[in-house]
């Protein structure tokens, strides 16, 4: 049932509400910092623990990865595919290392499982693409973050 409450007569003018509302607007406009960023020019600072685009760490241009397959084992999204091979300067190395970015859920378990400190999640968060992307090994070897 609708209850009709009797409002005081001055409410008819809404004057107090209009003035207090305007005061809030002016407070934000004049005295507070803006919450939005001008994105491509301005960027938000993220913590070092942020989990963004992957990369494989290299030392002296040799990848740390030994293709031990712990990251595909632990990966809940099953987005990592590795083919191991042997070469003269390294007993075991990943001949192919692919990360299917669309499947990746950025949980960071691969980074945690890695015994060689090889797979890393950088701070890069701009990954929007117009087509499916699978990160190949040569892309992953690009040292994206200083981790």
């Amino acid at each position: 049932m609708l209850i009709k409450r009797k409002a005081p007569w001055w409410n008819v003018f809404y004057l107090i509400e209009v003035i207090s509302g305007l005061l809030i607007t002016m407070k934000h406009f004049l005295f507070k910092k803006t919450a939005t960023l001008q994105f491509p020019e301005e960027r938000r600072e993220y913590s070092d623990r942020y989990r963004g685009l992957h990369y494989i760490k290299t030392v002296n241009n040799v990848e740390n990865c030994t293709a031990c397959m712990l990251c595909p084992t632990v990966c809940p999204a099953e987005c990592i595919h590795i083919v191991a091979e042997e070469r003269a300067d390294k007993e075991k190395y990943p001949a192919r290392f692919e990360i299917d970015l669309l499947r990746c859920c950025f949980c960071g378990m691969c980074e945690e499982a890695c015994p060689k400190d090889a797979i890393k999640l950088s701070n890069i968060y701009e990954m929007a693409q117009v087509e499916r992307i699978v990160l190949e090994k040569d892309v992953l070897l690009d040292q994206r973050g200083g981790k």
Binding site: T66, C68, K92, K116
Partner: peptide
């Protein structure tokens, strides 16, 4: 202790 490389692991 090269278990990551070793096939037996």
């Amino acid at each position: 202790l090269d278990c990551p490389v070793c096939d037996k692991s």
